Simulated scan of single mutants.
Amino acid sequence: MLTSPLEIEEPQREVNEVAELQIKRAILERSKRKWEFIWRGIKISAPVSDQQFYDDFFAHKITVAPGDSLDAILTISQVRDEDTGIYTNSKYEVKTVHRHIPRATQVEIDA
Protein backbone atom coordinates (compact mmCIF):
# COMPACT_ATOMS: atom_id res chain seq x y z
CA MET A 1 0.00 0.00 0.00
CA LEU A 2 1.39 3.38 -0.96
CA THR A 3 1.18 6.32 1.41
CA SER A 4 0.45 9.82 0.27
CA PRO A 5 2.99 12.58 1.00
CA LEU A 6 0.60 13.98 3.61
CA GLU A 7 0.79 10.77 5.64
CA ILE A 8 4.60 10.78 5.88
CA GLU A 9 5.59 12.21 9.23
CA GLU A 10 8.63 14.42 9.62
CA PRO A 11 11.59 13.01 11.60
CA GLN A 12 11.80 16.28 13.57
CA ARG A 13 9.29 18.96 14.45
CA GLU A 14 8.83 22.03 16.63
CA VAL A 15 5.79 22.66 18.80
CA ASN A 16 5.00 26.05 20.38
CA GLU A 17 3.11 25.94 23.63
CA VAL A 18 1.91 28.54 26.12
CA ALA A 19 3.55 27.54 29.37
CA GLU A 20 3.99 28.68 32.95
CA LEU A 21 7.62 28.03 33.80
CA GLN A 22 8.77 28.17 37.41
CA ILE A 23 12.34 29.46 37.63
CA LYS A 24 14.76 27.13 39.40
CA ARG A 25 18.01 28.71 38.12
CA ALA A 26 18.29 31.92 36.09
CA ILE A 27 21.07 33.08 33.78
CA LEU A 28 21.04 36.84 34.08
CA GLU A 29 22.90 37.70 30.90
CA ARG A 30 22.01 37.71 27.21
CA SER A 31 23.28 34.34 26.04
CA LYS A 32 22.24 30.90 24.85
CA ARG A 33 23.10 29.48 28.28
CA LYS A 34 20.24 27.44 29.66
CA TRP A 35 18.02 28.41 32.55
CA GLU A 36 16.48 25.66 34.68
CA PHE A 37 12.70 25.60 34.96
CA ILE A 38 10.01 23.39 36.43
CA TRP A 39 7.32 22.80 33.80
CA ARG A 40 4.38 20.50 34.47
CA GLY A 41 6.28 19.03 37.40
CA ILE A 42 9.45 18.16 35.47
CA LYS A 43 12.79 19.95 35.35
CA ILE A 44 13.77 21.28 31.93
CA SER A 45 16.68 23.40 30.72
CA ALA A 46 16.11 26.09 28.11
CA PRO A 47 17.69 29.33 26.95
CA VAL A 48 15.56 32.49 27.00
CA SER A 49 15.80 34.20 23.61
CA ASP A 50 13.29 37.04 24.19
CA GLN A 51 15.39 40.22 23.92
CA GLN A 52 12.55 42.46 25.21
CA PHE A 53 12.52 40.39 28.42
CA TYR A 54 16.24 41.09 28.90
CA ASP A 55 15.72 44.80 28.05
CA ASP A 56 13.07 45.02 30.81
CA PHE A 57 15.30 43.10 33.23
CA PHE A 58 18.36 45.31 32.67
CA ALA A 59 16.15 48.43 32.92
CA HIS A 60 15.07 47.13 36.38
CA LYS A 61 11.42 46.93 35.30
CA ILE A 62 11.38 43.37 36.62
CA THR A 63 13.45 41.43 39.13
CA VAL A 64 13.88 37.69 38.85
CA ALA A 65 14.37 35.22 41.69
CA PRO A 66 14.18 31.43 42.10
CA GLY A 67 10.55 30.42 42.60
CA ASP A 68 9.23 33.17 40.30
CA SER A 69 7.40 32.09 37.14
CA LEU A 70 7.37 33.16 33.52
CA ASP A 71 4.19 33.04 31.44
CA ALA A 72 5.83 32.31 28.10
CA ILE A 73 5.83 30.66 24.68
CA LEU A 74 7.93 27.52 24.97
CA THR A 75 9.26 26.04 21.73
CA ILE A 76 9.70 22.28 22.06
CA SER A 77 11.90 20.47 19.54
CA GLN A 78 10.84 16.86 19.07
CA VAL A 79 12.42 13.85 17.36
CA ARG A 80 10.36 10.97 15.94
CA ASP A 81 11.34 7.40 16.77
CA GLU A 82 11.29 5.47 13.49
CA ASP A 83 10.23 2.18 15.08
CA THR A 84 7.31 3.42 17.17
CA GLY A 85 6.39 6.70 15.44
CA ILE A 86 6.42 8.40 18.85
CA TYR A 87 7.82 11.93 19.17
CA THR A 88 10.01 12.70 22.18
CA ASN A 89 11.13 16.12 23.38
CA SER A 90 14.79 16.76 22.58
CA LYS A 91 15.28 20.43 23.51
CA TYR A 92 13.44 23.52 24.66
CA GLU A 93 13.67 27.29 24.09
CA VAL A 94 11.74 30.14 25.69
CA LYS A 95 10.89 32.30 22.65
CA THR A 96 8.61 34.95 24.16
CA VAL A 97 7.99 35.98 27.76
CA HIS A 98 4.49 37.42 28.12
CA ARG A 99 4.62 38.08 31.85
CA HIS A 100 6.86 37.68 34.88
CA ILE A 101 5.03 36.32 37.95
CA PRO A 102 6.78 36.96 41.29
CA ARG A 103 6.73 34.11 43.78
CA ALA A 104 3.95 34.42 46.33
CA THR A 105 5.34 35.33 49.76
CA GLN A 106 3.69 35.25 53.13
CA VAL A 107 3.49 38.59 54.93
CA GLU A 108 3.92 38.75 58.70
CA ILE A 109 1.21 40.63 60.58
CA ASP A 110 2.33 42.70 63.54
CA ALA A 111 0.48 41.69 66.68
Rank of each mutant, 00 (worst) to 15 (best):
G85L: 15
D81G: 13
I42G: 04
A65P: 03
S77L: 11
A26N: 07
S69M: 10
Y92L: 00
E93D: 05
A26V: 00
P47V: 01
V18S: 15
D56Q: 07
R33W: 04
R103N: 15
K43T: 10
R25E: 12
A72L: 00
R25H: 12
R103V: 10
E17G: 11
E82N: 11
I27N: 04
Q106I: 05
F37P: 01
A72S: 11
Q51F: 00
S69W: 04
E36W: 05
Q106L: 15
N89K: 04
E17W: 09
I73H: 01
T63P: 07
F37S: 01
V48C: 00
V97M: 02
I44Y: 00
E108Q: 11
Q52G: 10
L2A: 05
L21Q: 02
N16W: 08
G85S: 13
P66W: 04
D50S: 09
Q78M: 12
R13Y: 07
E36G: 03
H100T: 08
N89H: 05
T88S: 08
L74T: 03
F57C: 00
F58N: 01
E9Y: 15
R80S: 14
P66Y: 06
I44N: 02
V64Q: 09
L21I: 04
H98Y: 14
L2R: 11
I44M: 06
I23D: 04
V107L: 06
Y54C: 03
Q52S: 13
I86C: 12
A46R: 02
Q22I: 08
M1F: 12
A59W: 03
L2W: 05
T75C: 10
Q22S: 06
Q22F: 08
S90V: 07
W39N: 08
D81A: 10
H60S: 14
I8K: 13
P102M: 09
G85E: 11
Q78D: 04
A65N: 13
Q78F: 07
E9S: 15
D81Q: 11
K95A: 07
P11A: 13
L21K: 00
Q51H: 10
W39C: 05
E17D: 13
T75P: 01
E10S: 14
S31C: 03
S49C: 02
I62M: 07
K43Y: 09
I38M: 10
P5M: 12
T3N: 15
R30A: 07
Y54Q: 09
F53H: 08
I27T: 02
G85A: 13
I109S: 13
I86Q: 15
T96M: 07
T96V: 11
Y87D: 06
E20N: 04
A19I: 03
H98F: 10
I42L: 12
V64W: 02
F58G: 01
K32Q: 04
Q51G: 03
D55A: 13
Y87P: 03
D50P: 05
L70C: 02
Q51S: 15
A72M: 04
E17H: 14
S77P: 02
P47K: 05
Y54R: 06
R33C: 01
P102A: 13
S77K: 14
W35E: 01
E17Q: 15
G67W: 09
V48Y: 00
Q106K: 11
